[in-house]
């Protein structure tokens, strides 16, 4: 049993570190984790879920706006992307945030092609992140179920 926990814990650590190293996450996620305590045990999950919901909504908003060829409301896209940027930086979704910055620039320069391309990337990126975080949470779950403690990962 212990070995299983230890194994899980190591996997958890490695996975987390890889997430950081591959640039999916940054410090803010660590901060976020620090905020989770006994009073709010699911804080991170909650926030992250909120974030992904937000993502989905905003991305579909933007996609809709960009679909209207010839009459694209860049302002709308801009405000959406600003929101997305804010939430992604709050969560620490580093790659999404970076893409948001690029998308914002494209939007400011009214570069339709760039916007569409970036939006696609954002879509892919957030889905990847979602999958990764899902894995991470699953791992956590497993550790907890196995009766172990979730290890502190220092980045």
């Amino acid at each position: 049993m212990d070995t299983l926990i230890a194994q899980l814990q190591r996997r958890f650590c490695d996975f987390t570190i890889s997430l950081y190293h591959q640039g999916f996450l940054d410090d803010q996620f660590t901060e976020l984790k620090k905020l989770q305590d006994e009073c709010s045990p699911d804080f991170v999950a909650e926030v992250v879920t909120l974030f992904f919901e937000d993502c989905e909504k905003l991305i579909s908003n933007m996609a809709r706006a960009l679909d209207q060829t010839g009459n694209v409301d860049f302002k709308l896209v801009g405000s959406s992307v600003h929101q997305l940027k804010g939430s992604s930086s709050s969560v620490g979704a580093k790659r999404v945030k970076g893409l948001c910055v690029t998308l914002k620039e494209c939007c400011d320069s009214q570069n339709y092609e760039g916007c569409v391309r970036c939006l696609q990337q954002v879509d892919i990126e957030y889905k990847t992140l979602k999958a990764k975080l899902q894995d991470l949470f699953n791992l956590e779950q497993q550790i907890v179920q196995a009766g172990g403690r979730i290890p502190q990962v220092d980045i």
Partner: peptide, 16 residues
């Protein structure tokens, strides 16, 4: 804050 995520994070920080 109009951004849910930000709101949640800020709230979490202050609650802490």
């Amino acid at each position: 804050d109009d951004n849910n995520v930000n709101l949640r994070v800020a709230a979490g920080a202050l609650k802490k």
